[in-house]
Design a protein around this nucleic acid. Structure first.
Lengths: 335, 335
DNA sequence: ACATTTATTGTAATCGATTACATTGAGAAT
DNA sequence: ATTCTCAATGTAATCGATTACAATAAATGT
């Protein structure tokens, strides 16, 4: 391995001078710098980052913990994060929690071990106290998910209002018996979307039949199973607001399997606008989150925290958008 | 920050002893070790990995470069990699090339900078020579994609034979006018699947109409557009082998848009068996790759390389599987 | 001509662990 | 009693950079 000392020897200068050339300190005479540069090239020298990092005590690496890397929603956010990271000379250390809280928590120890300068969490299922303590000592930003009433820097959409919007869209299409298959209620976005649903219903004077609200698991199968349950009811819903797109697609598949047509016999709104939402048939009406932007914003905030700059505020709510496609239809009064 | 010296002072021993306790060297008296452990706990000491890494000159980190992190095929492989990595105390540094060769190459410099102990490439689009040189100096394993005739350690399926198998399935259903929409031919798997297609056709004495073979881009849109092209032909194909599932789905969408039914009027086989293949309608008949296993195997190989162990061989071909679902049907002679 | 500043470079401490080598003391062997 | 082993621990070098401080030379001011 070529060391800085080797370069120094070849260029007939001290290691300090070489280091100055590398870091562009500007206090090196032009001719000396050229000699050094030449030696670097000649020896094909690359600085050992470990040594630099130890000395500067910074890793130029950030840790990103995702709940599920195989979910394209999260990988899209990740891409936003990485784009800003790379731009600023940072690398991304990946932690895929596989929807497991414990492994999520395990990744956090990497911060204390100085394997990363900061942390972006795309999942907020760890104990809130642990994370708030961690955030005292290290730069931490949450994205997508968040803790209620916490001051932790967060980038997300307003899930409650988005859910309200989605539900109101169904209401505007004359639906009254609207069901909701939620995500897990121990996950904040599952909870908030459920809340938004209830708020919209209440605000429009519609009662919610408790048997038409079921807690699912953010998966296709879960959507399928719970919709089957709805369909076996005496009086099934005419519309459904699903906690995410997978749930929505599962539900639609269930409806079709029972011979119902979507949207003619059942209207469905999803959430997230994952890639397949537009390819699915019927193309899914859903709430789009600005995934890439959220990732970028989160990384920009983290960068500020790392540089010890003040944040103008802690909670950043980005705009969502209801994407109307083909999975909903106005209810014609014929029953 | 708590250093090893702080622990040493509190426990009234030297830093060497503390270090020995931490690394479980076994040459420390039981009582001393207990004292040290207590101090560690008391001070909440965590070793600084940067220092350890510099001294041991190993990072316990591996670099994984993927062509496109938002493609669930690759994230599934990544998951396999990470599972074995974590098990062995390694972390994964992620490089998302975003289908760009240049940024793919850029990530490789991280190895020389000692930011990772080894590299797994899920993409082989960089100049072959560069990579082979790199592989002289650092542990490198390829997965999914590979270089033809290269000795680089590789884990993949046999794309040619898989493509043959897929095509033969269509032939077994009596199809004769079979089209192929390939992936980019500068990507080895695109090329090999195309080859397999031609081989199968030739082996069964079927001629390939050149206008029925088109090079696409591994995307839904590409599949859609090229299928539209096929459909505007005087004599369109009765069956299609697509270079991957996205292409297949795009093609099916195109066929449907023209009023054709799949599989009644057109049979389609895809490749990869991504998550959505089974949810898509019609559920896609496709070649499944053992994504998780490939990832695990690749990581196990890399671990061996890192430990300087011999590999029993260089090329590992894992078994694929044709998953028959609903997108193909026997051609009844009626035309 | 002398003092003072400034530009350039070098020397050596430092980051925080690991580990080669040295030291100590207790028990075993003669 | 003396020497030898061996277990347990300590001292200090080391990994490869960065950087505070020192030193030198050149330039400038009076």
């Amino acid at each position: 391995m070529v060391r800085i000392a080797d370069v120094a020897k070849m260029a007939n200068v001290s290691t300090a001078t070489v280091s100055r050339v590398i870091s562009n300190a500007g206090t090196v005479k032009k001719e000396t710098a050229e000699k050094v540069l030449e030696a670097i090239k000649e020896l094909n020298y690359q600085p050992n980052m470990l040594a630099r990092q130890l000395r500067r005590s910074e890793t130029k690496t950030i840790l990103v913990v995702v709940p599920d890397i195989t979910n394209t929603f999260f990988s899209a956010v990740l891409r936003g994060i990485e784009s800003v990271a790379i731009e600023n000379g940072y690398q991304v250390l990946l932690g895929d929690a596989r929807n497991d809280v414990e492994s999520e928590t395990t990744f956090l120890t990497l911060l204390g071990q100085k394997k990363a300068d900061g942390l972006i969490l795309l999942t907020a299922r760890t104990n809130q106290k642990i994370l708030e303590d961690l955030s005292q000592d290290y730069p931490v930003v949450l994205a997508c998910e968040y803790y209620e009433g916490s001051k932790l820097p967060t980038v997300s959409i307003d899930n409650i209002s988005s859910a309200r919007k989605a539900t109101e869209y169904l209401i505007s299409l004359n639906h009254k018996r609207i069901g909701h298959i939620s995500g897990p209620l121990n996950i904040v976005v599952g909870r908030d979307r459920c809340r938004g649903f209830h708020q919209a219903m209440a605000q429009h004077g519609l009662s919610v039949d408790p048997s038409l609200v079921q807690e699912g698991e953010f998966s296709f199968e879960s959507g399928f199973n719970l919709m089957m349950k709805f369909l076996s009811l005496e009086n099934p819903p005419t519309a459904l607001f699903a906690g995410n797109d997978e749930l929505a697609m599962g539900a639609i598949k269930a409806a079709k399997s029972k011979g119902l047509r979507v949207p003619e016999d059942l209207s469905v709104v999803g959430f997230d606008d994952i890639q397949f939402a537009s390819i699915f048939e019927p193309a899914l009406t859903t709430v789009a989150q600005p995934t890439f932007d959220m990732g970028q914003k989160a990384m920009r905030l983290l960068l500020k925290l790392i540089k010890d700059e003040e944040l103008e505020k802690d909670q950043f709510i980005l705009p969502d958008k209801l994407i109307v496609r083909e999975s909903c239809k106005e209810l014609t009064i014929e029953e």
